[in-house]
Amino acid sequence: MAATLFGTTGTAQALGPEGTTPLGVGAVRLVVGGMGLMAVLPLVGGLRRDAVRLWRTPAGVAIGVCTALYQVSFFAAVQQAGVAIGTLAAIGSGPVLAALLARFVLGERPGRSWVLATGLCLVGLTLLVTGGGAAQRVDLVGVALAILAGLAYAGYTVLAKGQLSAGQEPSTVMAAAFGLGGLLLLPLLATQPMAWLLEPRGVGMALHLGLVTTTLAYLLFVRGLAQLPAGPVTTLMLAEPVVATTLGIVVLDERLTLISTTGVGLLLLGLVLQGLGAATGKRREEPSQPAPTPAEASNGPAGATT
């Protein structure tokens, strides 16, 4: 569900007003989304003072920096290297980098299902974004920025998983991360043209990107992260380009080549395999109810005596 909401960001930006910039839109999204998470935190079981307290911890600061760094580096990568290459390098590197970080930071070992599913998804993503037939020069600076975005995404996923494992409330972790990330990006807004925010379409786009694709989406994201390892979660997030592509066809009247369509099919297959593998692994981790001892069996219901 989180990935589905993430997948609407590109279409929302395409339907927005003239005069926007990628960095401006990214900063507004994080600022509005961070404020939204802090605002609804008491309604979803968290406390604002706990979120602010996380800002004073090394992990809390690192997560906030990662959220801000992802927004800036991803939109800069897309601007520098183009949508196809930038998206492929950023979103494609995320699951691999997250699994590596989770292995060393959290001790999580990726299973066979993750390897197979992620491999299918990465092949599918490559076909999807490069299957249009148009040649594109690879910009090394743009690719480096995209991989930095993937590393930032992996970083906040793994660090947030560590905070959840330490007993932090899920919504508090996300509110702290995006609240701090939004504060860090406030100065960026002063460097971008923001007249589009005075238009009704601009306000609508900002609210959708901030409240729907950030506040709501990351509340869903962190609930899933609390139940599953970091590696499978980032692989499942690869549903985002599938949703974005579908909306591009239905809403923006875009067209897919046969190669790109094959890529979507491989992505969907990889996501199904990852979902099944993650669910199976979750069931295996659930502790089974211990069988009663003979003495307990003879005592009948709890509290009864023979």
Rank of each mutant, 00 (worst) to 15 (best):
G204E: 06
L5F: 02
V173Y: 00
G16C: 02
Y156G: 00
P200N: 10
K282R: 15
P294M: 02
I249G: 03
Q168R: 15
Y153G: 00
G92T: 02
L164Q: 09
L276E: 13
R29W: 11
T87L: 12
F178D: 02
G162K: 14
G107Q: 10
T130F: 12
G182Q: 11
V105C: 02
L258A: 15
G300N: 03
P229G: 06
T21I: 12
V233M: 15
A68H: 08
A99G: 07
L225C: 00
T214L: 15
R201N: 06
A90W: 04
A154Q: 04
G24Q: 05
L220A: 14
V222G: 07
I259W: 12
T191D: 02
T126E: 07
P290M: 09
P17V: 06
L122Y: 13
R112V: 13
V40H: 08
I85R: 04
I91F: 15
L106T: 10
Q192W: 00
S93D: 00
R284M: 11
A226P: 01
L23C: 09
A160E: 05
T293P: 01
T11I: 04
A297Q: 14
V123K: 10
S165Q: 15
R48E: 03
L37G: 10
T57D: 06
L225N: 00
P110L: 07
V83K: 07
D139R: 00
W196Y: 01
S288R: 15
L127M: 15
L43R: 12
L47C: 05
A99H: 00
G162W: 03
V52Y: 15
Q80P: 08
A176R: 01
L198R: 12
L41T: 01
G202Q: 03
L120K: 05
G33E: 07
Q79T: 14
A295C: 04
P229E: 12
L266C: 10
L116E: 07
S93E: 04
E296D: 13
S171D: 05
V173I: 01
T305F: 13
L207R: 04
R109L: 05
G210L: 09
G281W: 08
V115I: 15
R53C: 07
L188R: 03
A135T: 12
A39P: 01
Y156I: 02
L122E: 09
S260T: 10
H208T: 06
Q192A: 03
F178S: 01
L100E: 00
E108F: 00
G24K: 05
L37V: 08
A144N: 02
Y153A: 01
P241H: 08
G94T: 15
T8V: 10
P294Y: 04
G142T: 01
L252M: 11
Q227E: 14
A154L: 06
R137C: 01
G281E: 15
S288A: 15
G19Q: 11
C66F: 14
E296T: 07
Y218G: 11
G46Q: 05
L47G: 09
L69D: 07
G60M: 06
G7I: 03
P292Y: 07
A117L: 06
L209P: 01
D139H: 02
L97K: 10
D253H: 14
A76Y: 08
A51H: 07
A278R: 08
A304S: 14
G167S: 13
A2N: 03
Q192V: 02
Q136N: 09
G16R: 06
A99S: 12
E285W: 05
V233L: 13
G265V: 08
G300V: 02
V250D: 05
R49M: 08
